[in-house]
Nucleic acid binder design. Structure first.
Lengths: 228, 228
DNA sequence: TTCGTCATGTAATGGGTTACATGATTAC
DNA sequence: GTAATCATGTAACCCATTACATGACGAA
């Protein structure tokens, strides 16, 4: 899970560990609070040993859109101690694709779903649909389980347990609806977020004239790479 | 966490491990899928060594409401192999109270909250309020964090990540509302579930004539034990 | 007699956490 | 010069999981 997240982030741009963690918090904030260095650095080491990532030249690091900040006559940032910048390799990309494609465990409370979802812009539509449908199935199962309990055993449970189940059921129902929408969006070849109410950058996003959905999987701004 | 759950269930009635697991699934279904024997049995052993639980006489086991089933002339169920029935001890009850009272970690995705909540009918109102308010604070923090991201960094995130954050924000907002209601209910001395729409067993549940909330913490059907 | 379910357990492993230790750089 | 923050790491532990092994009992 950490592995997937690291590879996914490095796919966008090379980074060092500390930065990686910050990005992780921002990207996965929904599903996990934070991730500790105690697991981050060992994982980086392991990934490097397996050839999935390499140390990049600190000066070659993309400073992204903010340009190089200031002075160029000093060695472009006198490598503060280690500050090991990692970049993903070809093997790493392969590995990423594998991890992304394989569904998580069959449990409902699978935190891996969020991580998968967070990197959907790096996947093809087939995979996205498979993951979304898998998730839907699991949440539906859970929903049915909760309905059963509430229908059959409600009087054997105390008020608080009951309330907990009710809240869980409601959340499950809502998530199913959410997933349903996302699935519909995928099938129609659109990208989430461009709803009627919230327009932002709506330059006629393809449409129904593309039955196979091969074209314009994503907005041009972040086209998914083809991994092998 | 497992410890808390085991003690909480044994507080209601003695049980053996296998049964314990089934009850656990039913009671905590909301927060965890299932719990494996590989962690259940070792935990039981440990709890026993610590004096929190003891092996109960298999024949003394409360068969609950279903009465003793059938024959009494044979040793009341020729103990199928081990079938170790455990009962909670005085130390166990103390331990349970401690565990229940201490708040979980400061993380938002704390699965302990659900377990705490599931055993609310065994706690006093002060503790309940403290836990609910703690949870609310954490979820609010998370909500603010998500709002920040969506307000400030939305254009730097791809559509899927954005959608994930939106969904997370919505869930957080809803949970805060839920918690708010529960807190209000607690403060007014009521018990959740007896809303106007859903009456079921509404024989005038106390009311506002009890400012300190000492009376009728719970419906008579499952009065909380006093632990020490 | 064999299969399904009840029932208990162990060993290996996994994926993380906390607490700690260290040092470099920047801002005051 | 000193505090805050950036940055990397290690060691010990924790709480659970998976896979496996065992065995009793009831029903077909």
């Amino acid at each position: 899970m950490l592995e997937l997240a690291i590879l996914g982030l490095l796919l966008e741009t090379p980074m060092h560990g500390y930065e990686l963690r910050k990005q992780l918090v921002m990207k996965l904030g929904t599903f996990r609070a934070a991730i500790s260095y105690g697991s981050l650095y060992p994982t980086l080491r392991r990934l490097q040993q397996e050839g999935c990532i390499t140390e990049a030249e600190p000066e070659a690091v993309a400073n992204g859109e903010e340009g190089d900040r200031g002075l160029r006559h000093v060695p472009p940032m006198t490598s503060r101690r280690g500050r090991v910048v990692y970049a993903i390799t070809a093997e790493g990309k392969e590995r990423f694709a594998e991890l992304l494609a394989q569904a998580g465990p069959e449990t409902f409370d699978d935190p891996a779903f969020g991580v998968h979802f967070a990197f959907f812009s790096r996947t093809d539509r087939q995979t996205r649909l498979r993951i979304l449908e898998g998730r839907r199935r699991r949440v539906e199962e859970r929903r049915e389980g909760l309905r059963d309990v509430l229908a059959r055993a409600a009087e054997r449970l105390d008020a608080y347990t009951l309330e907990l189940q009710r809240h869980g059921l409601e959340a499950a129902e809502r998530e199913v609806r959410w997933l349903e929408e996302l699935i519909a969006t995928e099938r129609s070849g659109r990208t989430p977020g461009s709803t009627p109410t919230d327009v932002r950058d709506d330059r006629g996003t393809a449409g129904l004239a593309d039955p196979l959905g091969k074209v314009r999987d994503n907005p041009p701004s972040d086209t998914p790479e083809r991994f092998e």
